[in-house]
Design a protein around this nucleic acid. Structure first.
Length: 612
RNA sequence: GGGGCUGUAGCUCAGCCGGAUAGAGCGACGGUUUCCUAAACCGUAGGUCGUGGGUUCGAGUCCCGCCAGCCCCGCCA
């Protein structure tokens, strides 16, 4: 619908300017040209679009809104391009202009998209001619080395991946950066502990298997908290590591490699691709960041700490709050690292990534931290004009009790356990249904279907709620076969795929040439067909919206609504039993629906099944 | 004390740049097996959109006050 929307936007504005030339002239000169306020129709009976611009003009023009609407509609009647696109407009209510696209244009658009593997979603053009668009950095997941991935990493990982997929599909080069916590004072105690319990690991390859890193971390932490001598050694170890001591460095690498292997198991299960670029990467740049802030006159030393005082952020005593970038002991902290990373990502290659847009997917609790970092970066001039810098916050994962999700014993929920349970539940559910229906399926089929459904349920539950609010985690709800859930959508794909198979049409548009030919002209007559056509054609606008607003739940809602509209269509209109030419046209709509659901779910990081 | 987020049907949540009669799923009640795997479809009931003001032709949406919950606030990330 985006191409139609663009065309109508221009036609409406031109009509408004022809209807009210003087006011239009003034509006343009004031840099506030007429806005037709074109939007999707709020109800189907109003057509495809509604233009609300006449209402806003009532006051400045001193005319009743319906009179204004009438004048605009009269001008539209003189525009042949408009006449080819739309039925005659209707004026309704206080002065809305309702627009209905001509059926043959809708049908033509369906045919065009069916022949396109991208289903009509355009790719972004380069900024100037042939050159590639600037990359988008999506910073997400970001677990800590030597710790386990837990439920706290779930949303960042899943939301970040979905956003990256949508941006990639739109043709942006995307840098998926895993900003892992691989640097900092905790490595002092970890390395000290490693040196003492397994010194051979530092000289011999694969001498030990660290195995349970979490237990290792706990042991180190326990000793650090209890033993003053250990503490002192650990502090010295931090200094050694930072000064590049080879043995300390080797120990650090061992810990990182072990963690990386464990993280990768989770990423493989979730089918998530990430480039690791941890905090240590920016280590050599920290000095320069602070020096440059000082050179810019932004740095103030307060209580021995290097601070940039924030504008518009006041503390308890009414004094401005600082962002500390150099600790009183001379060390740097996460704010310094975040500033270094931000600057590097915007900087032109080869000294940086040359990013056009920088997206941080972290929990909402870090909002003020990022606001502070962003402010300092802007004041330092590290955010080039025209580039976008966005924190994409999300709420907590809560249990049924409305509190932060914990295990029964009160521990943090490990991501591995969470995924295991989802898959186990999906499998039990599938086996029960197979038994009820007296179906027999291969073990490999059952395991594959259960894994797909279980993981999809976890992902979809997270993505389908507006990310800014906390969300209540519930296996029962996410695995429900009805409602806005992954199982419902996956099953919709299976059913529609079944219809298409039986009807003999090709599902994959890319393979269209080898399958039975589509009808040359699509014929639609029933309102249910038109409702489905209109829903299908919204896909491009939905993708554009997710790209802009970074809200995956908009795509989820769309896919769910599309399934519902399809089910209504299939319930009320015969497809396989219809006579030609309706049969082919209806099969084409079915094929289009399945393709849209598959593509949309794919962009959410959810693979589909042919049978389940 | 300051700042942020949240508050919409019994429950879980949508609600796009302010637009026409506030939506969905679950749960409850009632109806429907001519095509695909009924994991569906149709209908009924259920709302002072936390609350009080304001702006506007028009407010769930914008502004201000208040209430409640969660989170953040100098050297952890």
């Amino acid at each position: 619908m985006l191409t139609f929307l663009d065309a109508l936007q221009g036609q409406l504005r031109a009509a408004m300017e022809r209807a009210f030339p003087e006011a239009g002239q003034q509006a343009s000169e004031a840099e506030r040209p007429f806005d037709p306020q074109l939007a999707s129709a709020s109800r189907p009976e109003f057509g495809d679009f509604q233009a609300n611009g006449a209402l806003a003009l009532a006051r400045p023009l001193g005319l009743p809104p319906r009179t204004i609407a009438k004048a605009i509609v009269e001008q539209l009647a003189d525009d042949p391009a408009f006449g080819e696109l739309c039925e005659p407009p209707q004026i309704a209510g206080p002065g809305f202009i309702n627009l209905t696209l001509r059926p043959e244009r809708l049908a033509g658009e369906v045919a065009r998209r069916l022949a396109d593997p991208r289903l009509g979603v355009p790719t972004v053009p380069g900024p100037s001619g042939n050159s590639a668009p600037a990359p988008v950095v999506v910073d997400f997941s970001s677990p800590n080395i030597a710790k386990e991935m837990h439920v706290g990493h779930l949303r960042s990982t899943i939301i970040g991946d979905a956003l990256a997929r949508v941006l990639e599909f739109r043709g942006h080069p995307v840098l998926r950066l895993n900003h892992v916590g691989d640097w900092g004072t905790q490595f002092g105690m970890l390395i000290t502990h490693l040196k003492q319990v397994a010194p051979e690991a530092l000289t011999t390859a694969d001498a030990i298997d660290l195995g349970d890193l979490v237990a290792f971390y706990r042991q180190a932490k326990a000793r650090f908290d209890a033993d003053a001598a250990f503490q002192a050694t650990a502090r010295e170890e931090v200094v050694k590591l930072q000064s590049g001591d080879p043995i300390s460095r080797r120990a650090w690498q061992l810990l990182c490699e072990q963690s990386r292997r464990e993280f990768q198991q989770i990423y493989d299960r979730l089918d998530i691709r990430l480039s690791e670029r941890g905090e240590s990467f920016y280590n050599p740049l920290l000095e320069g960041v602070v020096a440059d802030l000082e050179g810019l006159g932004l740095l103030v030393t307060d209580d021995g700490a290097g601070c940039v005082f924030l504008e518009g952020v006041k503390g308890k005593d009414g004094q401005p709050l600082p962002l500390i970038v150099r600790k009183s002991d001379g060390g740097f902290n996460y704010a310094t690292t975040d500033l270094a990373a931000l600057r590097y990502r915007f900087a032109a290659p080869p000294a940086g990534d040359g990013a056009g847009r920088l997206i941080y997917v972290t929990d909402a609790g870090q909002a003020s931290h990022f606001a502070a970092v962003f402010q300092v970066a802007r004041r330092a001039g590290w955010v080039p004009v025209g580039r976008r810098l966005e924190h994409v916050p999300f709420g907590l994962v809560q249990g049924d009790d409305g509190k932060k999700l914990k295990t029964r014993s009160g521990d943090t929920v490990r991501l591995k356990d969470l995924l295991d349970e989802a898959v186990e539940r999906a499998e039990a559910d599938l086996r029960r249904r197979l038994a009820e229906e007296e179906r027999t399926e291969a073990e490999s089929f059952i395991r594959h279907a259960a894994t797909t459904v279980g993981i999809a349920a976890v992902k979809y539950a997270d993505l389908s709620t507006n990310r800014s609010t906390n969300y209540q985690f519930s296996f029962d709800r996410m695995l429900a076969l009805n409602g806005n859930t992954a199982p419902y959508l996956l099953y919709a794909v299976v059913r529609i795929a079944g219809i298409v198979r039986k009807g003999g049409a090709q599902l994959d548009p890319a393979a269209g040439a080898s399958g039975p030919a589509l009808p040359g002209v699509l014929h639609f007559s029933e309102p249910q067909e038109w409702a489905l056509v209109r829903e299908l054609l919204k896909f491009d606008a939905v993708i554009a919206e997710v790209e802009e607003e970074l809200l995956p739940n908009r795509l989820c809602s769309y896919l769910f609504e599309l399934s519902q509209v399809f089910n209504r269509f299939y319930d009320q209109v015969p497809v396989l039993k219809a006579d030609e030419p309706a049969r082919s046209s209806r099969l084409a709509l079915s094929r289009f629906t399945a393709a849209t659901l598959k593509l949309g779910l794919g962009l959410l990081g959810i693979p589909t099944l042919e049978r389940m």
